[in-house]
């Protein structure tokens, strides 16, 4: 076996699975999506007629698409800002020693390990128009009257709030764990030094702790952002884009268009609107990864 002794050939062979994986599972579908978006292909069709930018133009004409585009941005930004804030608070709280800390950690991690569709179905029940746990509780506490209460998933704004809530609930554990890792990566000496140097809580937090976890929390946020940008499961389970397409995001709209509606080309065009944002995010991540290497 000469290969085993040839460093360069061996390194190529060992890298090949990774390259193949990227090419087949990432590159392939990506190229396919671009091709689809320029054709009139349908789910069951063999016709591959080139239609230029027609699919994109059709998408832009569609008010549901414009709404979905706005929703996607809103959904990604708002959920990630909330996640960043909440994850920071949680991570800092979890760093301290207290009784039952392991239990709290476990509870916070649970949403991450539970299958998301199960979790979201739980939320479906929480937001249900008839059996909503929140509503029954608040009615019991006499905060809502006997006849009216909010229909969480039935009013466009409330529905969006509900969706963002579930997304936050869902991505919070990972962000918390990443931040917790970042926090425990700061040597205790640094904290001690800051304390001896006279830093009080806020100075310590904003001039020492936060700047030191910033790089890793940026990575976490960016991941969460890309994740939120491309994800549809919460929308799919909670509202299926309703009421009347006001909570549709690009990913769910693309899904409904292509898999349910059969219009693969149109769906691909909708999905490809994600591309510029994701490309920017990818560049950002690469940049940060490089910086992290230097440090």
């Amino acid at each position: 076996m000469r290969l085993a002794d040839d460093e360069r050939a061996l390194s190529r062979v060992l890298l090949a699975p990774a390259v193949l994986y990227i090419a087949l599972l990432v590159g392939g579908p990506f190229v396919l999506a671009i091709i689809y978006s320029l054709t009139s292909i349908s789910l069951g069709g063999h016709s591959f007629n080139f239609v230029g930018l027609q699919n994109f133009q059709a998408a832009l004409r569609d008010p549901s698409f414009r709404r979905a585009l706005g929703n996607t941005v809103l959904f990604a930004f708002v959920s990630q800002i909330l996640v960043l804030v909440l994850a920071s608070v949680l991570a800092i709280a979890l760093q301290r020693e207290f009784r039952g800390k392991w239990l709290v950690r476990l509870l916070i991690l649970l949403p991450w390990v539970a299958p998301i569709s199960l979790g979201t179905i739980g939320w479906l029940w929480i937001f249900d128009s008839i059996y909503s746990v929140i509503n029954w509780t608040l009615r019991y506490l006499h905060i809502f009257g006997a006849t009216t209460w909010p229909i969480w998933l039935g009013q466009p704004k409330l529905a969006m709030v509900s969706i963002v809530t579930v997304q936050v609930w869902r991505t919070l554990p990972l962000a918390t764990v990443i931040l917790l890792g970042g926090l425990s990566g700061i040597p205790q000496d640094i904290h001690d030094a800051a304390e001896v140097d006279g830093a009080r809580f806020f100075r310590h937090m904003f001039q020492i702790t936060i700047p030191l976890v910033l790089p890793i929390s940026l990575v976490a946020t960016l991941f969460g952002f890309v994740f939120a940008f491309t994800d549809m499961i919460v929308v799919y389970v909670l509202t299926r884009g309703g009421p009347f397409d006001t909570t549709q995001v690009l990913a769910s709209l693309a899904f409904f268009k292509s898999v349910d509606g059969g219009d693969l080309g149109g769906g691909a065009a909708v999905a490809l609107f994600l591309l510029p944002v994701l490309a920017a995010a990818a560049v950002g991540m690469l940049h940060m990864a490089r910086r992290a290497e230097v440090t």
Partner: peptide, 9 residues
């Protein structure tokens, strides 16, 4: 009706 019908599955 009530707005709940907008949220139904």
């Amino acid at each position: 009706m009530t707005p709940e019908v907008f949220s139904w599955d």
